[in-house]
Amino acid sequence: MARGWSGTIVHDGIVYVGTVDGRVVAVNSSTQSQQWSYSIDPPATIYTTPLVNGDLVYIGTYSGQVYALTIIEGTDRWVYPRSGSIGSIVGSPVIANETIYVSSSDGMLYALDTKYGDFKWKSEPLANKLWTSPTVTGDTLYASTFDGNIYAVSAETGTLLDWAFESEAGFASTPVIYEDIIYVGSFDRHLYAVEIGSDTPMWKFPEEKPADNWFWAAPIVNEGIVYAGCLDGRVYVIDAESGEELWQFESSDTQGKLVPIVSSPVLMDNLLIVVDESGAVYVFDLSTELEDEAVPLKAISIGDDVDVKSSFCAQEGLVYIRDEDNWIHVVDIDKGEVSWKVSLTVEE
């Protein structure tokens, strides 16, 4: 059953998130209470993480619509399409050049005007369905597909560009671009680095024996280092240039069983923050030298029987995590504990 796993975003002290009952909610982090709540009608499942741009917050729904809501009052400024729907939206939309780019389950990319939601273009079908987010760099949009292709599309017109990369295995994660290299996780349990314009991967990680599960979450890349969470319960830290493993961390529960990492890691200053599916938050100090079997600076649990599949965000020492029971947990890294939490469920 589709329940959704919308992630959190914080902007000017307000946390925006989609809920399991099809609402977009703004929570004031000072008062720890809901500032507004917008109910999508008819109720829709939400997998995308809200996106703030100017005075609007954008969200895509599984029912195939994009909403632009005002950040102050949570009223809708525009909805695309105004009637009907495009295919289900699972990957979070991205914004660049006053355009919001949306990937859809009808296999196409859509470009809409951020201000009025006007249709700009749609690409030709790139796959049976697109569940990952596109990535924009310059005037090109890159989309990875489940059938193992990476396509380059003109951000201006939506036309397919000459270069495309084809792999035998499908790509599970959203592509990430760093210095003209695309990093993307695959269903064949490898992470690929592909130089834009090249037909062969620069490297794949692990080089020989694959990991124990998929690289589902998009990796992050910073200062020449790739941080990749894997469903096998490990975070792999890899040299972006050579593909060599620098160190890894195993996220295990009290019984020693590895816990999958579904959400992408997040960087905050010199800290690498990893949250596993059971809601364990691991904080690594990247300014210290970390080696294999790295020990986290902090390990904080947000509770028992917690299920985290959403993306999370971190700002000013706080980590904002939404669980599948519709709670937002705010973790204070300095204190090493949950600072506050709020339920997004509407009291009947």
Binding site: Y47, V90, W131, N213, W216
Partner: peptide, 11 residues
């Protein structure tokens, strides 16, 4: 057919 079932497939 749903993102949850795809993720569940991994296990």
């Amino acid at each position: 057919t749903t993102p949850e079932s795809l993720l569940g497939l991994a296990h």
